[in-house]
Structure formats: structure tokens, C-alpha cells
């Protein structure tokens, strides 16, 4: 079960592959040699207690933070060696990120928030708004298009955040406790929306959670303890799980 000692090669067929990640913040070691594969189109839950390094792992995999040691490979590129501009482009085009709360820009309406990644990529305003509107519709928040984040409920703003993460048609979505600030029913709506869309568009999802009910939406689960993977394997048979759902 344990992969702490071995350092397998980057998994074949993995979309994103992390090997031997180490990251410290001051004297706190957040990651101590974590390895993980996220496969094309799979939904992977990463679970663990508070302070086990879950969020740091997500930050390293999505290119938000550079690890002190170890490699993150995506599409044949090593993220650690990429310039900041290229990482921004990856976050804009290939990745989507959803946090527990607060990732929406308070000055922008729901529609503008969702259109933002498109505008940053140089899409025309009209087209960006149209596509953003479609995504709001899909997540059942079309009616909130003109509201700013301050005027929406937690569940609504999380669904807007999901729309923003998915609007560019990313290959991977990184979700850090996306339902952490929501009640059960709102959380269920957010998770159902995320899982359905991800399956439809074969988007891979890395789902960070401490909640077993949320982890159950995933195809497989990897447990983190003290900054390393301790249960579920790095590479595991994620592919079958994907096929099971079709």
C-alpha cells in the first residue's frame, strides 16, 4: 500500500504526475516526498487531516506554488522549470481552480467573473459574455448573472466559481474543499454539478476534502498523512474507475 519509500517513474498515461514533492513554509514541512498521478478524465479525492499537506499538494500540482524538491510533469513539461508567464497561461487555459470560498473578484458581477479567464485570454467581450452566460445557465445561476459575490449565497457563489473554473474547457480542475463552507444540501448541488460536467467533458478533477461523503464522489481516493501519501497508491487503477462510470 505505502509508496513512501519507492519513487516510481512518472506514470504512463497520467495527465499530471508528481514525484517526491517536498515543500516547506519556514520551519513547517508541508510536503515530505509526496507522489501522485492524476489520470486523464478521472476524479481523484485526496483526503487527510488538517495540516497533512493536502492544500500544498494541490498548489504544487496546479503550478500555483513551486515545490522545493521533486517534479510535477504535465503534458511532457516540468512545471518547476516553466516561467511565470507560461504557468499563468496554463492556469488560464488548461487548469481550473476552485477554493473553499473567496476566489471570486468582489468587484465583478457573476457574469464578468466567469468571463474573466476568457477576457484575459483575449476573447472578444461579446463572445466571452455569451459563453459565460451558458455556463451560468448550466449551473443554475443564470438568474444571479448581474449580482456581485457579496449578494449571492455561499452555494451560488461556489457554483459561479465552478463555472469560472470550467469556462475555458480545462483538462484538469483543482478543487480545494469546494463544499467546505456550505451546508449539506448546497454542497450536494455543487458536487453533483462538478461531477456531471467533469464526466461529460472528460475533465480530470483533483478533489481535496476531509469529508468522506464528498470523497465518495470520486473514482478513487488517496490518503495523505504528514506530507506523504500513505493510503491508496500513487498510480492505482484509476482508469477502470473511469470506465465504470463511462
Amino acid at each position: 500500500m505505502s509508496t513512501r519509500d519507492e519513487q516510481p517513474l512518472p506514470g504512463a498515461g497520467a495527465l499530471i504526475s508528481a514525484r517526491g514533492l517536498r515543500k516547506s513554509y519556514g520551519r513547517t514541512e508541508a510536503l515530505r516526498g509526496a507522489s501522485l498521478d492524476l489520470h486523464e478524465g478521472e476524479i481523484l479525492a485526496v483526503t487527510g487531516a488538517s495540516g497533512s499537506g493536502k492544500s500544498t499538494l494541490l498548489h504544487c500540482l496546479s503550478g500555483i506554488v513551486r515545490p522545493d524538491e521533486g517534479t510535477v510533469t504535465y503534458g511532457g513539461e516540468e512545471l518547476g522549470g516553466l516561467p511565470e508567464g507560461r504557468l499563468s497561461e496554463l492556469r488560464r487555459r488548461d487548469f481550473g481552480v476552485v477554493f473553499q470560498f473567496g476566489q471570486l473578484i468582489p468587484e465583478l458581477t457573476a457574469l464578468d467573473n466567469v468571463a474573466l479567464p476568457l477576457l484575459l485570454a483575449g476573447t472578444r467581450r461579446g463572445e466571452a459574455n455569451e459563453r459565460a452566460g451558458e455556463w451560468l445557465e448550466r449551473f443554475g445561476v443564470r438568474g444571479q448573472a448581474d449580482l456581485r459575490p457579496g449578494g449571492m449565497s455561499g452555494g451560488q457563489s461556489q457554483r459561479v466559481a465552478l463555472a469560472r473554473a470550467l469556462v475555458t474547457g480545462p483538462r484538469a480542475v483543482f478543487a480545494d474543499e469546494p463544499t467546505g463552507a456550505l451546508d449539506t444540501l448546497a454542497g450536494e448541488q455543487v458536487m453533483t454539478a462538478l461531477v456531471h460536467t467533469a464526466r461529460e467533458s472528460a475533465t480530470a478533477v483533483l478533489l481535496i476534502t476531509h469529508d468522506a461523503q464528498v470523497a465518495a464522489y470520486a473514482d478513487r481516493e488517496v490518503g495523505l498523512r504528514d506530507g506523504a501519501v500513505h493510503s491508496g497508491s500513487a498510480q492505482a487503477a484509476g482508469q477502470e474507475a473511469v470506465r465504470r462510470e463511462g
Partner: peptide, 13 residues
């Protein structure tokens, strides 16, 4: 337990 929970979640979604 997790395996059973995944089954139930797949059923309800």
C-alpha cells in the same frame, strides 16, 4: 466503507 459510499453516491447522482 468508502467503496460502498462511492456506489451509493453513483446511485444517487
Amino acid at each position: 466503507h468508502m467503496e460502498r459510499m462511492r456506489e451509493l453516491t453513483a446511485l444517487k447522482t
